[in-house]
Design a protein around this nucleic acid. Structure first.
Length: 428
RNA sequence: GGAGAGGUGGCUGAGUGGUCGAAAGCGGCGGUCUUGAAAACCGUUGAAGGGCAACCUUCCGGGGGUUCGAAUCCCUCCCUCUCCGCCA
């Protein structure tokens, strides 16, 4: 959510800035509602002040043993009047809130212009894709011929866009998760957290998934409004909702591994083959709660933390700055890390690292006490995948495959794989 | 699932219809003292919103109600704790 004062002060500047990402702010509607709000609020408060004053006088009269009936008669009707106008105020405020909740974040000045992912800007490219002396297979073919990847069974159990793994591949996914967590904890200074995988509406509003993106989520049927998390960003960031954090407790660096669930509505026909786009996938997520002046250096650091994993796993990748039109609703700036996939002969997203500045914090009422002002101020939130485990798994399969269909296990993962060096078809 | 007790400021915790935004303590900030620090003492210190300002409004788990007036009474939902039962 944007600062309402920013909108009041210079709505045209805000509207212009939002236009950069292709969002049209209904300036006239906001102006109109603000106007009404002001009138209704002043009127409500005036009536409330009068009521308070009169009531106090009645209290005093009663204490003095006087007859209070005449005083009560004097304010007959005031209650109804107040009720009418304050109800109107609530309505206006509600409309304004709804409108404001669906306005995306302002972009950082360094975000390049552009409409779609085609306009994203490459920042750097690390590692060189291997030249295979044979025709590289894709991960579906590799996994199925190993007998360790089975989409059919998963489809029977649940439906399309689900996976089942077996044997070495199942272990490798777990090994990857473990390796990622350990690296962030031991080398990058993160604290591991464990969080709910079902969350309430408030939490999703806080991080910006609701009210706008309901269709992307899986909702649980039942008395309570639970949603399956689309990313650990939701529960982890909500750890600081409604909190006033002490200055010395910042920055908070948190990491967790969770399954993620996405309905993938609107992506029919896209990435239907393989592990790329699933309803359920594993992800390791980094979340940092920081002081505002540090959020951009934090974004760089956190992106580097994700990159470190790809380097250790010997996977070629590139880092992209998302352009204005491709940057997500809540983010002020986003780097996507894209891993090389030989079978697709292209780079595909494996991590997304964003600075949300105070956008999420304002919705969450997540604040810190600034010692200089001794006042609570909004924190900044920064997060990123480190990494999407399922996609990393398929990247390893494709990049580290051999001609015979076996897959080399990167050295850093071998300790997590009971010393195993390659995945091969089980003879047994 | 059954029975009971609770949810109050950054924290602990008093307050059960009227000058209560709320005692007290802790913590924070400022000061006295000290070579410096600690201790002690004095003062100060909730959040959000409106208005150029004086000032005003709202907030005692969420929502609704009663009343001239609600932290306090009523309804409802959520959460926490204790005991019993069941259980990964």
């Amino acid at each position: 959510m944007l600062d309402i004062r920013l909108i009041r002060d210079d709505i045209d500047a805000v509207a212009t800035a939002l236009l950069k990402r292709g969002f049209t702010l209904d300036v006239e509607r906001v102006r109109g509602l603000e106007e009404e709000r002001k009138t209704a609020q002043v009127e409500t408060q005036t009536l409330q002040a009068e009521r308070n004053q009169r009531s106090k006088a009645i209290g005093q009269a009663k204490a003095a043993g006087e007859d209070i009936q005449p005083l009560k008669d004097e304010i007959a009707g005031l209650g109804d009047k107040l009720k009418t106008i304050s109800t109107r105020l609530d309505e206006i405020q509600g409309e304004l809130d709804t409108l404001l909740m669906s306005v995306p974040n302002l972009l950082h000045e360094s975000v390049p212009e552009g409409k779609s992912e085609d306009d994203n800007v490459e920042v750097r490219r690390v590692g060189t894709p291997l030249e295979f002396s044979f025709a590289a297979k894709d991960h579906v073919e590799l996994g199925e011929s190993l007998g360790q990847l089975d989409f059919e069974r998963a489809a029977a159990i649940a439906g399309s866009r689900f996976t089942s793994l077996r044997g070495g591949l199942a272990s490798l996914q777990r090994a990857l998760t473990q390796f990622m967590l350990d690296t962030h904890i031991e080398k990058h200074g993160y604290t591991e957290v464990y969080v709910p995988y079902l969350v309430n509406r408030e939490s999703l509003k806080g991080t910006g998934q609701l009210p706008k993106f309901e269709e992307d989520l899986f909702k649980i049927e039942g008395e309570s409004d639970y949603y399956l998390i689309p990313t650990a960003e939701v529960p982890v960031t909500n750890l600081v909702r409604d909190q006033i954090l002490e200055s010395d407790s910042l920055p908070q660096r948190m990491v967790t591994h969770t399954p993620c669930f996405r309905s993938e509505a609107g992506s029919y026909g896209k990435d239907t083959r393989g592990l790329i786009r699933q309803h359920q996938f594993e992800k390791v997520e980094m979340v940092q709660i920081v002081k505002p002046e540090h959020s951009y250096e934090t974004l760089e650091e956190l992106t580097a933390h994700a990159e470190a994993l790809l380097q250790a796993l010997e996977l070629p990748y590139r880092v992209m700055t998302l352009c204005a039109g491709d940057t997500g609703f809540a983010a002020a700036k986003t780097y996507d890390i894209e891993v090389w996939l030989p079978a697709q002969n292209s780079y595909r997203e494996i991590s997304s690292c964003s600075n949300f500045e105070s956008f999420q914090a304002r919705r969450l009422k997540a604040r810190w006490r600034n010692p200089e002002t001794s006042k609570p101020e909004l924190v900044h939130t920064v997060n990123g995948s480190g990494l999407a485990v399922g996609r990393t798994l398929l990247a390893i399969m494709e990049n580290h495959q051999n001609e015979d269909g076996s897959i080399n296990i990167p050295a850093v993962l071998q300790p997590y794989m009971r010393g195993k060096q390659r995945l091969e078809k089980d003879v047994a």
